[in-house]
Design a protein around this nucleic acid. Structure first.
Lengths: 130, 130, 130, 130
DNA sequence: GTGGTCTAGACCACT
DNA sequence: GTGGTCTAGACCACG
């Protein structure tokens, strides 16, 4: 279900967090869907259960999932609870980061726009919003 | 010269790395320009010289600067030495990351495109390239 | 496990780097093998942990090992990621260096060939390659 | 006369030392030939005179050149004054270094032998010796 | 005065 | 217990 690269410098729990977020963004996981239990996922992915717990903690903190005692973790289907200013800052930071790195990788502005458009196509964005 | 947030979860040396990259991308630092010496920057930013050394290590590894014993650190003006495939992958990863996080922040595809365009305007991209 | 000469003009961390590379080349360390932990090696070799970290940094940069947070450092078993031209240049430089120094040490071409053959015998070279 | 790469991590004075040694080994500089004066070389190569002095110091120490008060530096045409054991060790170290690095660059034993042979051809080795 | 290396030791993040 | 980061400060090599 998840593809983890233990070689990566990105912590394993963060790889899990991002992959869950990506699945939700692509519509492959929707509101109410149940995530694998900590034990199951730990066994299948050969990971330490503590690592899974930490990932689920982070996802719950970000409002992506909720934990229900005794029944498991479920996708909320809601978006960030950040207030307007910080939310805007977070978006700008990701955009600036992508643009700066694209520059240093030797890509043009058009290359970056094309890559972003490609990424957008894979995601189920709402029709409109600000 | 640099704005460091010691509270951030992003390591200080990585904050420095990104800020230097951003200055280069914006054209505020160009090929051949000299960066502050390790000691000077350590004093001005109230950081330990070793932290600066780590940042400069990373920047040299990324090909953004070169160091010359006894002379100082200089901007190269070159872009990544990554081979074609990894270079493309890196760009796609930044784009996917931005798009996924934009989704979870509750932004629309248009919001993301606008944010990326705004970031692009601040950067001195080459006219064209692939 | 390692023999360090703190008097040598060659930095301690580079001595470590070369000795690890030599162990791998001789087949005494293979893909997946775990290196001593930073702390353990620091204690056993009476070195500062930071010095070990630097050596492991360089080995990771050269693609000889990978590090996993919380698990340790492991031999990759892969060879250089250098592109064809630089790779060739690096080999030629080592050969030229050896030949030039052999000349100034007063050795003949045959002496050098014999010394290289002796060194080759200790290393587990792949059968063939270009 | 000399090609210096200020970008290189190899100190400039060592680049000079090696290039003089290489010229001598190739027969392009022979016993009695005069090296450029410190000032001349410093001017032509845009280097700090101290750097040249240090290189000439090292070459004199290695017995490659001699200084004569008021007249300049001259190639001796002699080889190392190292005693037998250390001389042998030095050769073996260069051979082992070349072989180990060749392995990690992904070359075969034959590749290394070919590179060494190519380097030998450029050098005016004495007919025989041990 | 510049960067390079090393020691000593603390605290944090990850598995 | 593993590696990651940071501080404090010394001494050396280089230009």
């Amino acid at each position: 279900m998840f593809r983890i690269d233990p070689q990566s410098s990105e912590p394993i729990f963060e790889q899990l967090v991002f992959q869950v977020k990506a699945l939700v963004a692509r519509g492959q996981l929707g509101a109410g869907d149940k995530l694998p239990s900590v034990r199951t996922l730990a066994r299948e992915a050969s990971l330490n259960p503590n690592t899974i717990v930490r990932a689920y903690d982070a996802l719950e903190h970000d409002g992506v999932i909720v934990r229900r005692q005794g029944s498991g973790c479920f996708v909320t289907g809601e978006t960030s609870a950040l207030n307007g200013k910080r939310r805007r800052q977070a978006l700008d930071e990701y955009a600036t980061r992508a643009a700066t790195e694209a520059f240093h990788l030797g890509f043009s502005a058009e290359d970056l726009r094309a890559a972003v458009d490609k990424a957008i196509k894979r995601i189920r964005f709402p029709e409109d919003e600000g």
